[in-house]
Design a protein around this nucleic acid. Sequence first.
DNA 1: GTGAAAGCGCTAACAC
DNA 2: GTGTTAGCGCTTTCAC
Lengths: 343, 343
Amino acid sequence: MTTRRVTLADVARKAGVSRATASFVMGGRSDMRISAATQARVLRVAQDLGYRPNLTARGLRTSVTRTIGLVSDTIATAQYAGEVIHGGLDAALANDHLLLIAESAGDRHVEERLLEGMLDRQVDGIVYGAMYTRVVEPPRSLLGRPVVLLNCLAEGFPAPSVIPDEEAAGRTAAQALLDAGHRDAIYVVGGHHVTSRTPDGVFAGRERMSGIEHALRRAGVAPARVIECAWAVEQGYEEVRALLAGGHRPQAIIGCNDRVSFGACQALQEAGLDVPGDVSVVSFDDSGLASWARPQLTSIALPHYQLGRTAVELLIGGRLEPVVHRIPMPLRVRASLARRTHR
Amino acid sequence: MTTRRVTLADVARKAGVSRATASFVMGGRSDMRISAATQARVLRVAQDLGYRPNLTARGLRTSVTRTIGLVSDTIATAQYAGEVIHGGLDAALANDHLLLIAESAGDRHVEERLLEGMLDRQVDGIVYGAMYTRVVEPPRSLLGRPVVLLNCLAEGFPAPSVIPDEEAAGRTAAQALLDAGHRDAIYVVGGHHVTSRTPDGVFAGRERMSGIEHALRRAGVAPARVIECAWAVEQGYEEVRALLAGGHRPQAIIGCNDRVSFGACQALQEAGLDVPGDVSVVSFDDSGLASWARPQLTSIALPHYQLGRTAVELLIGGRLEPVVHRIPMPLRVRASLARRTHR
DNA sequence: GTGAAAGCGCTAACAC
DNA sequence: GTGTTAGCGCTTTCAC
């Protein structure tokens, strides 16, 4: 036996008012000036009966569902997609919304189905995300609807974007080294992240490099070498090993992400060099690796939580001007960076 | 200007049939025997007009929304919550459902709000999850509704549970060592995971230990030592360091999760011992750490994807008998385990 | 201040 | 085989 849900009509009847009146009271509308007594009575009865509005019915009537859709290419694979969701959820919850979440695995067809499903369920808007920052082409079916682009940019698609401020992060990394007294033998490992699948590098690579170079140049410092390689543990390890084998003696390394930095540390330590005693290391992403490594890595954090949170806030707040919102990437100071004193 | 969505009425009008007929055709119901010609015409028109059913309206009428709610204590923090979601999403998508996903951060009040929000939106069922396996107490408001417990168990709550088969995983770990010829100087690091917050250890700890001990005993082998400590990198490192300092010479280590094993490896390597040359290491979880470590860790994987997938499948399939479904944990063979030859 | 009535888009008896 | 009709639970104009 399943007890029927109590409806607004039940509340109205029990309170001795019409359904309309009950609706006004529950909706908290003051323009219809209901007597305070009636108001209290209705509220009271609703409370007693455990009345909960049927949002499906309300949605049908008003076509607002207080539900928003979040679709992304990958949720599982990405390191901290969880944080993005977390941020989005917090923003949603704070505004009494809920999130329909799905991932397309990069499949256009799946993406289309997912979006249709969300639209069929009358979501109030869509957060269209990518798990690493890049230029995307959202389906035309989203044109004209409330959309916020999360961690991606789209040309000719009039929607706001929320992305990490990678350029500033690059400057932060270089500045952290400079502030610690480093000026010589600074090596950058990773570069633009050129691989067979990303022949032009990636957005984060270009911006991080640009920021690094800019900050160093401004201080009159030139990196000893910029090593272009894929952003993986293995490459970081191999490249630094080759470097050391070639007689180089780095005093500082900027690893373009945590995996590269982690690999670099392994190579340094294998060669008997101490981090940060002999070599300082600064990294990017602040993934779990940064704190699992020993020593723990100083890293510029990807602001996943803020990304998710901001995107949902913009959507719910209706701030849909096609503007790029750059979220700051904070420096997380840990053991791998040490001060150098010049002799 | 926002073009109105095309409704079933539009389709019916354009096709020259009644709304009911159109509804039957779209619903693919054969019991109302509509002429093939009419059927084709309706379908055709629907296609041309780009008709999409309004699931909110359908939901109001039928009270099935093809939407299910997934609520868990933590989504962000957990290593691979993403994989759980991924599995759930795949199952949902395969059945034309969508997922409302939220996390309570372990806050009862938030959890209640989330669940209410989902119920208000008329979800067809709830997946109630925990990010590490344990006994939970779902809110009474869920009683009598379609619920599946994901990665948790509840006493006196009539719902199916889907959990990893940790006991079998323990046996798998021990057996892997035995199969590689190990019989002596086997150390277990981690134990039940007793901490101030978990004075009785955790479910995974108890089951893994039980499985390990069972398999070893059956082979007539006794572990040299079982070290109880928190399952963290730092503890794994410290405990193994202390062990070595105390004159112990392990030939094999079972780390009770990847963090412990990772820390253990660091201590071993720091002491000049080679993994797996001198010491074999077997781990649990198969988190990112297992493949980032060098050597990469042989680890028994937490079946996150299958957990999520199975939970949603049970829910959609209506298989709601209060049964505990134990999902196998596969052995991922990597470099940290090597064969021992007896002399 | 309050109530009657219409209608959001859809499905499902039931009549023809 | 197809159309008529009622109604899911809610909001909202418009009379009173």
